[in-house]
Design a protein around this nucleic acid. Sequence first.
RNA 1: UGGGGUGUCGUCAAGCGGUAAGACACAGGCCUUUGGAGCCUGCAUUCGGAGGUUCGAAUCCUCCCACCCCAGCCA
Length: 564
Amino acid sequence: MTQVDVSPPTDFIREIIEDNFKTNKYGGRVATRFPPEPNGYLHIGHAKSVCLNFGIASQYGATCNLRLDDTDPSGESLEYVESIIHDIRWLGFDWEDRLFYASDYFEQLYQFAVQLIKAGKAYVCSLSADEIREYRGTLTEPGRESPYRKRSVDENLDLFTRMRAGEFEDGTHVLRAKINMTSPNIVMRDPVIYRIKRAPHYRTDIQWVIYPMYDFAHCLSDSIERITHSICTLEFENNRPLYDWIVAQLIADDRPQQIEFARLNLSYTILSKRKLIELVEERYITGWDDPRMPTIAGMRRRGYTPEAIRNFCAKIGVAKKENLVDISLLEYCVREDLNERAPRTMGVLRPLRVVIDNYPEGLTEEFECANHPQNPAMGKRMVPFSKVLYIERDDFDENPPNKYKRLGPMREVRLRNSYIIQYQSMVKDEQTGEVVELHCTYNPQTRNGPPSDGRKVEGVIHWVSANHSVPAEVRLYDRLFIIPDPASVEDDVTKYLNPGSLETLASCYVEVSLAHATPGSRYQFERLGYFCVDSKDSLPDKLVFNRIVSLRDSWGKIAGQGKG
RNA sequence: UGGGGUGUCGUCAAGCGGUAAGACACAGGCCUUUGGAGCCUGCAUUCGGAGGUUCGAAUCCUCCCACCCCAGCCA
């Protein structure tokens, strides 16, 4: 299978790395890391960062560590760690034996803090949280120095030791870096670097009651791991001076450099962990792996491939500009990949019964069908044909609109991989007027070609033999939100959830070859889209398919409204 | 009104002083037993705006404008 071309992407980060090679910074060494906090599932935005960090590592023959940034016990859990590990592996990346946890560094980090105190660069502040906020000043007014700022090194050491020993309640003391309360950058106004938090940590349990803050832990974790390029998102730009300050106090050489890039925003969805958690907890969707979710788990269950996601990440590029990537690009990448690898099959989602009047009663023919018309290597399968069939309701119209190429009164149409049939009559429900059955005739000569008189039959529709197909449930998914940029709404974003994001069709029929389709396997239902056997709900005797993505539908555009 | 960033096609995004890549989307057309796939064509005289430097500027300078981030003991 020819791999989608992913020519080595070039971006400003790789430029920096290559500049570093020229100046011999880090001695030609490159080391990156992907540092998620285990307080939620990874989503497509994380995938961008994963691809960036691991991609750079493999491109330069370097390493990328996986580091769980678990410095705040509230909200972090093993479940999230496991999901993160699983998702990154599934995406196709490997960190070998370099799985690290910030919590593994707690002792070292503590010692670094002691070092800072001894250097007179940190102090224990006993102001309340509210007071610290007041002293911090505002965006336009400078802050004021804490009355505790002048504590002696010995007193600070004593207090910090006792903080660790658990002598104090939450919030009574913090350790602060002594930098500059009048800095125009608020981050530099004596930032808190340690807080007391009597909460059990999912890994260290109750061993610690003080935890380092991100700004302190992250740069030093990077240093401990000898990371060279610490890539993070734009909102940390203000924190970079602090990153550099801490590292400058404590690390002798090969100090890591932080580089910020713009996080991914995807249209019609939301990539804020906080909001995603809300969707899960408030049950707006079924869980982190709901196929409508932009999470890796959700996309995996939906049927997206790692290749498609990686290719998407390569296509969107890396820059510093805030962006809103059109979700149609993701869908394009999914189709591009699935078009190559998904075997073709036939399935009827909204069945309409068709009786072939002149077809022998009780006869069953087996037609050999290509699994992939453009790729003979994918082989063939047998598809049974008989007198009673199901076709898609959409493929018959009592009053065909202009340009409609499918079946209608007095029309004929090609059954995909089979005969041309001709309309004879229809049966309607007396109550509703709904068409419930069609009667057609077939032309036995047209199995493998056009009618003998050379008539051209344009329409081709898919079908399934009523007695030889298997019932299935099909879940049709659509974008999660009805507005292009749900992330930008001020009020309750759940108001903009797409009520039609899931449509369940319980009475579908798929061809017999699918009877033993295994969970997670993907197929194209010809003319409809790509479908994946649901890995959670599908059973051998009750198949459930997720629609991964529809096929491009140029008729839907002409008709004005694409239907499932 | 402080500081830090960013502004190139509808959406991403190249471009790094020599006269606007590419992709998605969109619009036409060809082909077709998937209205799929594939193929072809079109799609920024202009780079947030205004000045300036230069033979030449999206790229350099000046001023202006817009948007994003920062006042968690979150990350």
